[in-house]
Design a protein around this nucleic acid. Structure first.
Length: 268
DNA sequence: CTATTTGTTTATCC
DNA sequence: AGGATAAACAAATA
Protein backbone atom coordinates (compact mmCIF):
# COMPACT_ATOMS: atom_id res chain seq x y z
CA UNK A 1 0.00 0.00 0.00
CA UNK A 2 2.50 2.65 1.00
CA UNK A 3 3.94 4.93 -1.64
CA UNK A 4 5.56 8.34 -1.30
CA UNK A 5 2.79 10.11 0.60
CA UNK A 6 1.63 7.12 2.64
CA UNK A 7 5.21 6.53 3.77
CA UNK A 8 5.42 10.16 4.87
CA UNK A 9 2.12 9.74 6.69
CA UNK A 10 3.36 6.66 8.53
CA UNK A 11 6.65 8.33 9.42
CA UNK A 12 4.75 10.99 11.33
CA UNK A 13 2.87 8.37 13.34
CA UNK A 14 5.99 7.93 15.45
CA UNK A 15 6.35 11.66 16.12
CA UNK A 16 4.79 11.32 19.60
CA UNK A 17 7.92 9.39 20.54
CA UNK A 18 10.35 12.15 19.58
CA UNK A 19 12.68 12.96 22.45
CA UNK A 20 11.65 9.88 24.41
CA UNK A 21 13.93 7.14 25.65
CA UNK A 22 13.29 3.60 24.45
CA UNK A 23 12.83 1.67 27.68
CA UNK A 24 12.22 -1.70 26.11
CA UNK A 25 12.40 -3.23 22.63
CA UNK A 26 10.07 -6.06 21.71
CA UNK A 27 10.79 -8.09 18.60
CA UNK A 28 9.33 -11.04 16.82
CA UNK A 29 12.68 -12.75 16.08
CA UNK A 30 11.29 -15.16 13.51
CA UNK A 31 9.81 -12.38 11.40
CA UNK A 32 11.24 -12.01 7.92
CA UNK A 33 12.21 -8.44 8.83
CA UNK A 34 15.16 -9.84 10.74
CA UNK A 35 16.62 -11.80 7.85
CA UNK A 36 19.48 -9.29 7.47
CA UNK A 37 19.98 -8.31 11.08
CA UNK A 38 19.21 -10.45 14.12
CA UNK A 39 16.43 -9.25 16.37
CA UNK A 40 18.76 -9.21 19.37
CA UNK A 41 21.03 -6.76 17.58
CA UNK A 42 18.10 -4.41 17.13
CA UNK A 43 17.19 -4.77 20.79
CA UNK A 44 20.73 -4.04 21.89
CA UNK A 45 21.11 -1.24 19.34
CA UNK A 46 17.99 0.72 20.25
CA UNK A 47 17.40 -0.07 23.91
CA UNK A 48 18.07 2.92 26.17
CA UNK A 49 18.53 5.34 23.27
CA UNK A 50 16.37 8.36 22.51
CA UNK A 51 14.43 8.93 19.30
CA UNK A 52 15.79 12.18 17.90
CA UNK A 53 14.28 12.58 14.44
CA UNK A 54 13.06 10.97 11.26
CA UNK A 55 12.92 11.46 7.52
CA UNK A 56 11.54 9.82 4.41
CA UNK A 57 13.15 9.39 1.03
CA UNK A 58 10.74 7.94 -1.46
CA UNK A 59 9.55 4.74 0.16
CA UNK A 60 12.52 4.62 2.54
CA UNK A 61 12.33 5.83 6.12
CA UNK A 62 15.16 6.67 8.49
CA UNK A 63 14.84 7.17 12.24
CA UNK A 64 17.70 8.73 14.15
CA UNK A 65 18.45 7.67 17.70
CA UNK A 66 20.97 9.05 20.16
CA UNK A 67 24.63 8.04 19.96
CA UNK A 68 24.58 7.51 16.22
CA UNK A 69 22.00 4.75 15.85
CA UNK A 70 19.95 4.86 12.64
CA UNK A 71 16.94 2.65 12.04
CA UNK A 72 15.98 2.20 8.39
CA UNK A 73 12.50 0.95 7.59
CA UNK A 74 10.74 0.00 4.38
CA UNK A 75 7.04 -0.80 4.57
CA UNK A 76 6.91 -3.19 1.63
CA UNK A 77 3.34 -3.85 0.54
CA UNK A 78 1.52 -3.90 3.85
CA UNK A 79 3.74 -2.36 6.51
CA UNK A 80 2.47 0.36 8.82
CA UNK A 81 3.66 2.42 11.75
CA UNK A 82 1.41 3.30 14.64
CA UNK A 83 1.68 4.87 18.07
CA UNK A 84 -0.17 2.88 20.69
CA UNK A 85 -0.98 3.46 24.33
CA UNK A 86 1.30 2.00 27.04
CA UNK A 87 -1.22 -0.78 27.67
CA UNK A 88 -1.33 -1.95 24.05
CA UNK A 89 -0.77 -5.67 23.62
CA UNK A 90 1.24 -6.47 20.46
CA UNK A 91 -0.27 -8.90 17.97
CA UNK A 92 1.32 -11.42 15.64
CA UNK A 93 2.11 -8.99 12.84
CA UNK A 94 3.78 -6.45 15.17
CA UNK A 95 7.41 -7.20 14.38
CA UNK A 96 9.02 -4.33 16.26
CA UNK A 97 7.69 -2.48 19.30
CA UNK A 98 9.65 0.36 20.93
CA UNK A 99 8.31 1.14 24.36
CA UNK A 100 8.53 4.63 25.84
CA UNK A 101 7.00 6.04 29.00
CA UNK A 102 4.16 7.58 26.96
CA UNK A 103 3.35 4.79 24.53
CA UNK A 104 4.54 2.18 22.09
CA UNK A 105 6.02 2.75 18.65
CA UNK A 106 4.84 -0.19 16.56
CA UNK A 107 6.05 -1.48 13.20
CA UNK A 108 3.48 -3.90 11.86
CA UNK A 109 3.55 -5.83 8.58
CA UNK A 110 1.39 -8.89 8.09
CA UNK A 111 2.68 -9.71 4.63
CA UNK A 112 6.31 -9.26 5.56
CA UNK A 113 7.75 -7.65 2.47
CA UNK A 114 9.01 -4.88 4.70
CA UNK A 115 12.65 -4.32 5.46
CA UNK A 116 14.63 -3.19 8.45
CA UNK A 117 18.21 -2.01 8.80
CA UNK A 118 20.17 -0.70 11.74
CA UNK A 119 23.37 1.28 11.36
CA UNK A 120 25.63 2.47 14.17
CA UNK A 121 27.74 5.32 12.83
CA UNK A 122 30.49 7.23 14.56
CA UNK A 123 30.67 10.18 12.17
CA UNK A 124 27.46 11.80 13.35
CA UNK A 125 25.77 11.60 9.96
CA UNK A 126 23.28 9.24 8.40
CA UNK A 127 24.44 5.89 6.99
CA UNK A 128 26.03 5.60 3.59
CA UNK A 129 23.10 3.88 1.87
CA UNK A 130 20.84 6.78 2.79
CA UNK A 131 23.19 9.41 1.37
CA UNK A 132 23.52 7.40 -1.84
CA UNK A 133 19.79 7.38 -2.64
CA UNK A 134 18.87 9.08 -5.91
CA UNK A 135 17.25 12.56 -5.71
CA UNK A 136 13.62 12.67 -4.60
CA UNK A 137 11.15 13.74 -7.26
CA UNK A 138 10.72 17.06 -5.42
CA UNK A 139 14.42 17.60 -4.71
CA UNK A 140 16.52 20.19 -6.52
CA UNK A 141 18.59 17.33 -7.87
CA UNK A 142 15.64 15.87 -9.77
CA UNK A 143 16.47 17.95 -12.81
CA UNK A 144 14.90 17.71 -16.24
CA UNK A 145 18.29 16.75 -17.56
CA UNK A 146 18.91 13.91 -15.11
CA UNK A 147 15.35 12.71 -15.66
CA UNK A 148 15.77 12.67 -19.44
CA UNK A 149 19.03 10.78 -19.18
CA UNK A 150 17.40 8.17 -16.97
CA UNK A 151 14.32 7.63 -19.14
CA UNK A 152 16.36 7.43 -22.33
CA UNK A 153 18.40 4.60 -20.83
CA UNK A 154 15.40 2.28 -21.02
CA UNK A 155 13.77 2.76 -24.42
CA UNK A 156 12.02 -0.62 -24.41
CA UNK A 157 10.43 -0.31 -21.00
CA UNK A 158 6.79 0.84 -20.85
CA UNK A 159 6.38 4.29 -19.31
CA UNK A 160 4.25 3.00 -16.43
CA UNK A 161 6.80 0.30 -15.62
CA UNK A 162 9.64 2.81 -15.69
CA UNK A 163 7.80 5.15 -13.34
CA UNK A 164 7.90 2.34 -10.78
CA UNK A 165 11.70 2.16 -10.95
CA UNK A 166 12.93 3.54 -7.62
CA UNK A 167 16.32 4.41 -9.09
CA UNK A 168 14.72 7.10 -11.20
CA UNK A 169 11.44 7.82 -9.44
CA UNK A 170 11.87 7.32 -5.69
CA UNK A 171 8.51 6.93 -3.98
CA UNK A 172 6.38 6.41 -7.07
CA UNK A 173 4.20 3.32 -6.67
CA UNK A 174 1.41 1.67 -8.59
CA UNK A 175 -1.37 4.17 -8.07
CA UNK A 176 0.88 7.20 -8.56
CA UNK A 177 2.30 5.74 -11.77
CA UNK A 178 -1.23 5.22 -13.13
CA UNK A 179 -2.21 8.72 -12.01
CA UNK A 180 0.80 10.24 -13.77
CA UNK A 181 0.11 8.41 -17.05
CA UNK A 182 -3.55 9.41 -16.85
CA UNK A 183 -2.80 13.08 -16.29
CA UNK A 184 -0.28 12.93 -19.12
CA UNK A 185 -2.92 11.38 -21.37
CA UNK A 186 -0.35 8.84 -22.51
CA UNK A 187 -1.06 5.09 -22.69
CA UNK A 188 0.82 3.38 -19.82
CA UNK A 189 2.24 0.73 -22.15
CA UNK A 190 3.96 3.32 -24.33
CA UNK A 191 7.60 2.37 -24.72
CA UNK A 192 9.76 5.06 -23.19
CA UNK A 193 11.73 5.29 -26.40
CA UNK A 194 8.58 6.39 -28.23
CA UNK A 195 8.16 9.48 -26.07
CA UNK A 196 8.81 12.82 -27.74
CA UNK A 197 11.03 15.38 -26.03
CA UNK A 198 7.94 17.40 -25.25
CA UNK A 199 6.23 14.43 -23.66
CA UNK A 200 9.37 13.72 -21.66
CA UNK A 201 9.29 17.22 -20.20
CA UNK A 202 5.64 16.64 -19.31
CA UNK A 203 6.51 13.37 -17.55
CA UNK A 204 8.98 15.28 -15.40
CA UNK A 205 6.50 18.01 -14.64
CA UNK A 206 3.50 15.78 -13.89
CA UNK A 207 5.61 13.43 -11.78
CA UNK A 208 6.44 16.36 -9.54
CA UNK A 209 2.87 17.60 -9.59
CA UNK A 210 1.45 14.22 -8.53
CA UNK A 211 4.15 13.94 -5.85
CA UNK A 212 3.18 17.33 -4.44
CA UNK A 213 -0.55 16.65 -4.65
CA UNK A 214 -0.20 13.26 -2.98
CA UNK A 215 1.87 14.66 -0.12
CA UNK A 216 -0.55 17.52 0.40
CA UNK A 217 -3.65 15.31 0.55
CA UNK A 218 -2.30 12.12 2.13
CA UNK A 219 1.01 13.03 3.79
CA UNK A 220 -0.42 14.63 6.94
CA UNK A 221 -3.86 13.14 7.58
CA UNK A 222 -4.41 10.56 4.82
CA UNK A 223 -7.42 12.37 3.42
CA UNK A 224 -9.27 10.80 0.53
CA UNK A 225 -8.13 12.37 -2.74
CA UNK A 226 -10.77 14.32 -4.69
CA UNK A 227 -12.90 12.53 -7.27
CA UNK A 228 -11.18 14.55 -9.97
CA UNK A 229 -8.17 12.21 -9.63
CA UNK A 230 -7.99 8.80 -11.23
CA UNK A 231 -7.26 7.49 -7.72
CA UNK A 232 -10.86 7.04 -6.58
CA UNK A 233 -11.93 5.24 -9.74
CA UNK A 234 -9.15 2.80 -10.52
CA UNK A 235 -9.50 0.07 -7.91
CA UNK A 236 -12.53 -1.88 -8.89
CA UNK A 237 -14.22 -2.84 -12.12
CA UNK A 238 -16.76 -0.46 -13.54
CA UNK A 239 -14.92 2.81 -12.85
CA UNK A 240 -15.31 5.68 -15.27
CA UNK A 241 -12.77 8.27 -16.36
CA UNK A 242 -13.24 11.35 -14.14
CA UNK A 243 -11.94 13.78 -16.73
CA UNK A 244 -14.49 16.49 -17.48
CA UNK A 245 -16.65 15.50 -20.40
CA UNK A 246 -15.15 12.01 -20.72
CA UNK A 247 -16.69 9.37 -18.44
CA UNK A 248 -15.41 6.52 -20.58
CA UNK A 249 -15.21 3.14 -18.86
CA UNK A 250 -11.70 2.61 -17.48
CA UNK A 251 -9.57 -0.32 -18.62
CA UNK A 252 -7.70 -2.55 -16.23
CA UNK A 253 -5.02 -4.99 -17.24
CA UNK A 254 -1.74 -6.47 -16.12
CA UNK A 255 1.30 -4.59 -17.34
CA UNK A 256 4.59 -6.29 -16.52
CA UNK A 257 3.09 -7.93 -13.49
CA UNK A 258 1.31 -4.91 -12.04
CA UNK A 259 -2.39 -4.08 -12.26
CA UNK A 260 -2.71 -1.02 -14.45
CA UNK A 261 -5.70 1.23 -15.01
CA UNK A 262 -6.15 3.76 -17.78
CA UNK A 263 -8.74 5.56 -19.86
CA UNK A 264 -8.86 4.13 -23.39
CA UNK A 265 -10.32 7.43 -24.62
CA UNK A 266 -7.96 9.98 -23.04
CA UNK A 267 -4.90 7.75 -23.19
CA UNK A 268 -5.09 6.50 -26.73
C1' DC B 1 -10.51 -23.28 -2.96
C1' DT B 2 -8.98 -19.61 -6.00
C1' DA B 3 -7.65 -15.19 -7.39
C1' DT B 4 -5.80 -10.91 -6.03
C1' DT B 5 -2.56 -7.55 -3.82
C1' DT B 6 -0.66 0.36 -3.88
C1' DG B 7 6.79 -3.72 -3.63
C1' DT B 8 11.35 -5.25 -4.10
C1' DT B 9 14.93 -8.78 -5.14
C1' DT B 10 16.95 -12.37 -7.71
C1' DA B 11 17.92 -15.30 -11.54
C1' DT B 12 18.52 -15.82 -16.30
C1' DC B 13 19.18 -14.59 -20.77
C1' DC B 14 20.99 -11.50 -24.04
C1' DA C 1 28.27 -4.28 -18.04
C1' DG C 2 23.98 -3.61 -17.81
C1' DG C 3 19.23 -3.89 -19.87
C1' DA C 4 14.99 -6.87 -20.39
C1' DT C 5 12.02 -10.15 -18.39
C1' DA C 6 9.68 -13.15 -15.31
C1' DA C 7 9.43 -15.46 -11.12
C1' DA C 8 9.91 -15.56 -6.16
C1' DC C 9 8.88 -13.89 -1.74
C1' DA C 10 4.22 -14.29 1.98
C1' DA C 11 -0.19 -13.86 4.01
C1' DA C 12 -4.63 -11.76 4.37
C1' DT C 13 -8.83 -10.69 2.02
C1' DA C 14 -12.71 -11.24 -1.23
Amino acid sequence: MPELAEVEYFRKRWDPGLGSRIDRVLTNPKARIYRDIPAVAVQRGLGGRKLLGSATHGKQMLFEFSDGAWLGLHLGMTGKLVFETPVYEPVKSDHLVLETADGKLVFSDYRMFGKLTLDLTDHGGPPRWWCDLPPRTLDKGFTKKAHTTFVRRFPKTPLKTLLLDQRGFPGIGNWMADEICWRLQIPPATRSGELTDKQLDAVWKITRQVSRDALRVIGDDWNTPPNSWLFNHRWKDGGNCPRRGCGTGLERADLRGRTTCWCPQCQA
